[in-house]
């Protein structure tokens, strides 16, 4: 075949791009356009999450069973993602569990540095299976030196009149001695 189009492929002229500093913007070295879109949602939470959040309002952690896969799932969902069948029976779980993994965050959600770090992690909820099965939440009443994987924890709930049907109806999980 005719070998006519062959070209040596080289780097572009300016592969590292142009360095732009925030001072260039402040000092109007470059012009720019800005936009702050107005984007708001009211997501329907669906029947499974609705029942779960309703449960939290009553101080209960609910799970749902998939008989086929022998799973007790929390947070609950209307179908089992493994067998793709519908889930069946609702079960009230304990509000205790075990730390599956954790992190100690020195940044707040807006990436500002904070002195008192946030303890956050994933909890395997007692009674749900197969392990690990649970959700992410904050930890409290423990120091960053005490926290470790495998630690037993228990939910600390907001007072009943302050609960609104949200995952934050649990304030945090605290160390838990007994079983």
């Amino acid at each position: 075949m005719e070998k006519s189009n062959k070209k040596e492929i080289t780097y572009p002229k300016n592969p590292a791009g142009t360095h732009l500093r925030s001072s260039d913007i402040r000092n109007k070295v470059i012009t720019h356009s800005w936009w702050e879109p107005e984007i708001q949602y009211a997501w329907s939470i669906g029947p499974a999450m609705s029942k779960f959040l309703h449960g939290l309002k009553e101080g209960k952690i609910l799970g749902i069973h998939c008989h086929k896969c022998k799973r007790l799932i929390t947070p609950p969902r209307s179908f089992c993602e493994y067998c793709y069948g519908p889930t069946d029976t609702w079960v009230e779980l304990k509000d205790t569990g075990t730390i599956n993994t954790y992190s100690i965050s020195y940044l707040d959600p807006n990436a500002n540095r904070i002195e008192d770090p946030i303890l956050i992690g994933v909890i395997s909820i007692d009674g749900a299976y197969p392990k690990p099965m649970g959700f992410m939440h904050y930890f409290g009443e423990m120091s960053k030196d005490e926290i470790k994987i495998g630690m037993r924890v228990k939910a600390v709930w907001k007072p009943e009149n302050e609960r609104e049907g949200a995952i934050t109806d649990i304030k945090y999980f605290k160390p838990y001695g007994g079983d």
């Binding site: 791009g17 992190s103 100690i104 965050s105 020195y106 940044l107 770090p117």
Partner: peptide
């Protein structure tokens, strides 16, 4: 380097870049 979310520290992380 400074701790971001222990055990992750500043130099453990790649920065978001244009490219």
């Amino acid at each position: 380097s400074e701790i971001m979310a222990w055990p992750v520290q500043r130099l453990d992380i790649s920065p978001p870049s244009d490219g």
